[in-house]
């Protein structure tokens, strides 16, 4: 077994840990937080909109 074989196993292992960490965190967040809160985001509005709608287009 050379360094490349070790690298192959290391890649499988690290990728597996990262994916499992994300899934575990996703499950934890789903259990700890209210679903309505997690789904509460609204489409963004830039400050341009807030100023622009009051004043119209800058000429």
């Amino acid at each position: 077994m050379d360094i490349w074989n070790i690298a192959e196993y290391a890649c499988w292992g690290i990728a597996g840990v990262l994916v499992l960490w994300m899934i575990a965190d996703m499950v934890r967040v789903g259990a700890e937080y209210d679903e309505a809160l997690l789904l509460s985001s609204r489409e963004g509005a830039d400050e341009l909109l807030e100023r622009g709608n009051a004043t119209g287009e800058a000429k």
């Binding site: 050379d2 690298a7 192959e8 499988w12 690290i14 994300m22």
Partner: peptide, 27 residues
């Protein structure tokens, strides 16, 4: 790996690591 003398390296774990690491970073 081929140029350094290791023929037939399995590229799949490297591909998976790229996707998993970058997804983790985005997460």
């Amino acid at each position: 790996a081929g140029q350094l003398g290791h023929e037939n390296l399995d590229s799949r774990p490297f591909t998976l690591l790229v996707i998993a690491f970058l997804a983790w970073l985005n997460y």
